[in-house]
């Protein structure tokens, strides 16, 4: 038979060309990543060690230890942690309700759609929406005062404060949690619950020994994602508080663009510190996510 000599050549010429074509699709991604991720990060890194004349210095990094700067990191961490935990718990309960709670299908689809939109709703529009609703002369503030005779600002609430900002952040935090956790909860197999019951376990024991350990990595991982999400937010906080809350992002803005505090080198160092914190979060998220994936193969 002549079979052997015939088909050999074609694949040999086609395959390498195919390989090149396969890579063309991802070239824009790499260009994008180089232009907007790698280059800025390296210029941040370089800028963090440069003085205004362009010479090498540790001043910027040392400058991070000023009380005001440390305070800004601490505040950013607190806001991020509070909204990650709060949004995480609230979002988890909501995800539980729509995925396992046995609600009608339309409830799930409307909550998922809302979450998709809300998790991306941030910045100036979000800030103004909250001002319009819960600001000093906001809609709900007014209703509570006029109809129920409750003055929330008298009672200590302030939209332009730490808790006000946290509440505003929650608006995009919990929907993100819903979006990530609903599929994770769907991934809990009915057989696991039934096998548990079959072996004598109560519902509580099922959650304690099976469901929670399986969900925990994605639960924590998503909370870390929420943490990073809040940590990097800038426009919402700026529009809402006008810079009165000393967050890291607001500090960076002030150092790089500001008229009074202008010190780009310190701004770079601040941003560099942020990148480090974000990188740690992403690494932790990836690690936890991988743990779950291994189980759920």
């Amino acid at each position: 038979m002549t079979q052997a000599s015939l088909p050999l050549q074609k694949p040999a010429t086609i395959r390498p060309r195919g390989a090149v074509f396969n890579w063309i699709g991802v070239i824009p991604f790499f260009l994008f990543a180089i232009a907007f991720l790698f280059l800025p990060s390296s210029s941040l890194f370089i800028g963090s060690f440069q003085n205004s004349e362009g010479g090498f210095t540790f001043d910027n990094i040392l400058g991070l230890s000023q009380p005001k700067i440390l305070d800004s990191y601490w505040l950013s961490i607190r806001v991020s942690a509070v909204t990650a935990i709060g949004g995480g718990i609230f979002g988890f309960l909501l995800a539980y309700a729509v995925s396992i709670g046995g609600l009608p299908a339309w409830v799930r689809s409307s909550i998922t759609t809302f979450s998709g939109v809300a998790s991306n709703f941030a910045g100036v529009p979000l800030a103004y929406a909250f001002v319009a609703v819960l600001g000093r002369v906001g809609f709900v503030t007014g209703i509570l005062k006029d109809i129920f005779n409750i003055d929330i600002y008298e009672a200590g609430f302030n939209l332009y404060s730490f808790w006000g900002l946290s509440l505003t952040y929650m608006y995009f935090q919990f929907p993100l949690m819903v979006l990530v956790m609903a599929p994770a909860l769907d991934g809990l197999k009915r057989e696991w619950r039934e096998a548990c019951e079959n072996l004598g376990a109560t519902s509580f024991e099922y959650w304690r020994y099976v469901a929670m350990p399986i969900l925990l990595p994605s639960l924590l991982g998503t909370m870390i994602l929420l943490f990073g999400n809040a940590f990097g937010a800038y426009a919402t906080a700026l529009a809402l508080t006008g810079g009165t809350l000393n967050l890291v992002t607001i500090q960076i803005g002030a150092q790089i663009r500001g008229d009074v505090l202008h010190n780009p080198g310190l701004g770079y160092a601040l941003a560099f510190g942020m990148v480090v914190i974000m990188a740690i979060s992403i690494a932790a998220y990836t690690w936890l996510q991988r743990r779950t994936e291994r189980w759920l193969r």
């Binding site: 057989e191 696991w192 039934e194 096998a195 079959n198 072996l199 004598g200 099976v210």
Partner: peptide, 21 residues
């Protein structure tokens, strides 16, 4: 009687082992 009080062992079709254990 609820399933967790029956003392009946069950093997499922799909792999129902607890993946975290």
């Amino acid at each position: 009687t609820p399933p967790n009080k029956r003392n009946v062992g069950m093997v499922f079709q799909a792999y129902a082992l607890f993946p975290n254990m």
